[in-house]
Design a protein around this nucleic acid. Sequence first.
DNA 1: CGCCGACTTGACATTAATCAAATGTAGTGG
DNA 2: CCACTACATTTGATTAATGTCAAGTCGGCG
Lengths: 219, 219
Amino acid sequence: MGLADDDLQRLDQIIGRRRRVLRGESLYRIGDEFTMLYAIRLGHFKTFQSNSNGNHQITGFQMAGELLGMDAIGTSRHLCEAIALEDSEVCEIPFSQLEELLSDIPTLLRHFHRMMSQEISREQNVMLLLSNMKAQEKLAAFLINLSSRYATRGYAANRFQLRMTREEIGNYLGLAVESVSRLLSDFKKKGWLNVNHRELELTDLPTLRSVAMGTDPCT
Amino acid sequence: MGLADDDLQRLDQIIGRRRRVLRGESLYRIGDEFTMLYAIRLGHFKTFQSNSNGNHQITGFQMAGELLGMDAIGTSRHLCEAIALEDSEVCEIPFSQLEELLSDIPTLLRHFHRMMSQEISREQNVMLLLSNMKAQEKLAAFLINLSSRYATRGYAANRFQLRMTREEIGNYLGLAVESVSRLLSDFKKKGWLNVNHRELELTDLPTLRSVAMGTDPCT
DNA sequence: CGCCGACTTGACATTAATCAAATGTAGTGG
DNA sequence: CCACTACATTTGATTAATGTCAAGTCGGCG
């Protein structure tokens, strides 16, 4: 991050205790007071809102190395809930202490703004996905996105486990479970991927990319 | 905003020149270098991304009093384009100068983080809208949203002008123009609103609210 | 072994997109 | 001022995509 050693040390000091969150447990709930940001050390999470009917809308899947809770800064209350998709571990970052540090360390401030801003862009991309794309494009884009995030973090880009159910994928993409299932089967038949339960292998990334962009000729 | 007088003065000083943007003109384009945030003084804007096919996806409509450009902080390049929906005026806020000020004035920092965070929440709400709602609910939610934003800024909640075309509404909501048009006619027939060109009167806000929430009994 | 939840597959229904055409409106230039 | 053009909007008919319902399979776990 380009921080000086002693700045890094100060950052280290405010990073609070580690917290384990078992699969299915909430890290925070809607309405909880906002005091911490959370850096995921290990595992995966989903975040979701509830609308007035009690339906859930998954707003994102987060993996180790990513930050949770930035949407709550504005209101001092959490507006969405975060649940672990598997046994996970986070670091608690008391936000008020972080704020003090941000004033002192311009580099850190810049980095923090960058992360918030990237969250905004990420969501704008999801808006694009949800409103412009066909089901097939949505799923391809989703898989490509996961793939590149794993690649960024040093894992294989073409072979990983889905940590979420088909239902959760469908909810996130605005598709019925059945559609997700059918599309996966379809992609498999077309030779673009292999899927067995949660185990996934992307065998034709270039085609998946062009499908995601809506530029594949054979669709 | 709860700023001390001299802090407010310092903020005033970094706010650069005003800039007029005529209807249809771009405030910034995709790929432009990011140096400024923009506070809208007058008028309305739309922001949109382009996907690889050249299709546009409108990511938001902004009105006087709102801030533009926060999505670009992360990349130093603009990822979306902002176009004026009518003759408008903005204040340029050089971001590097703002950053310095943020380090000095904790209250301002907190306020700034709040605005970014609210942008994140706003977009999460749009995700909810795009993926969970029926066409009818989307449009109702959209109108309610506009209404409450006008109300916040001291304008009538139940009577205002649409500054965007039906096509732009449809693009934003993930609907065809024809669907938007049909729905407006439908709402009118049901007595929920009056619409004449861009002039809009919401005559039954309670019902519109319950339609937006998917809890209206007669739908 | 048997239950349960996740997943798959097929048949059908529904929503909203697309296509087509008519109407209206704002802006332009003669 | 008016005719003309381009664009925005509305409405109807049809189609395509995806949701819903139903049934059944698969695998893990008590």
